[in-house]
């Protein structure tokens, strides 16, 4: 039975839990170090404020353990702030977990009044159009080696994957569409069939 840990330091973690629940995937909240002592198969870093999540990751001594799990192949899905947390470079700021070979721009679209929604067909993820909700969203300014671009919108990269790492600058968990969560569950399934990973 697959089990996903959701980083629940701040932000929209409950919504991810609900999305996973609706596709029959079990999950639990990670609020401190003792929560990651149990075995789990995948990690979600939700939307919220990346500055807050980044600070709490450090204060609660979660940053290094999670980083090494991800480096060892733990599948991880970061949405919005989660994308920023995973990026190797954050424009004008220090990075956080920094395992993914991308450069991101925070609040790239502007303030709340510039938040918007759209739809796009993302072939790798779903044959149907996926609703995209952008809330004070970042975008990926540039993607380095090993990064597969899943979706571009108006000339900016908004979804990408690098091996075990999946990121979106929009919020699939705020919609009823579960295509991205299913796609992430597939990444977990496939990675557990390759036994080289996950020795933590």
């Amino acid at each position: 039975m697959m089990k996903v840990g959701i980083l629940a330091l701040q932000g929209a973690f409950a919504e991810h839990k609900q999305s996973l629940c609706s596709i029959g995937v079990d999950s639990f909240e990670i609020r401190q170090k003792k929560d990651i002592e149990q075995p789990f198969d995948g990690l979600i870093i939700p939307g919220g404020e990346s500055t807050v999540i980044g600070k709490l990751l450090r204060k609660l001594d979660l940053l290094e353990p999670l980083k090494s799990m991800i480096e060892n192949g733990m599948p991880v899905f970061g949405t919005c702030a989660g994308l920023i947390i995973l990026a190797k470079n954050v424009e004008g700021e220090e990075s956080h977990i920094g395992t993914m070979n991308i450069t991101v721009k925070r609040n790239a679209y502007g303030k709340q009044i510039d938040s918007f929604s759209d739809t796009a067909v993302i072939e790798k993820v779903s044959p149907n159009p996926v609703p995209l909700v952008f809330i004070r969203a970042p975008w990926i300014e540039s993607a380095g080696d090993g990064v597969e671009i899943l979706c571009e919108l108006n000339g900016h990269i908004v979804a990408a994957r690098q091996e075990n790492m999946l990121v979106t600058s929009f919020h699939p968990e705020l919609t009823k569409d579960t295509a991205f969560h299913k796609y992430f569950a597939d990444i977990i399934k496939n990675s557990s069939e390759t036994p080289a990973v996950r020795a933590v």
Binding site: G48, E49, S115, S117, V133, L174
Partner: peptide, 18 residues
């Protein structure tokens, strides 16, 4: 409206915060 949905969504991003 969509705008109202987006506005509710921003508040969801503030959850668990100060």
């Amino acid at each position: 409206s969509t705008q109202f949905e987006l506005n509710k969504n921003l508040a969801q991003m503030l959850k668990g915060g100060v």
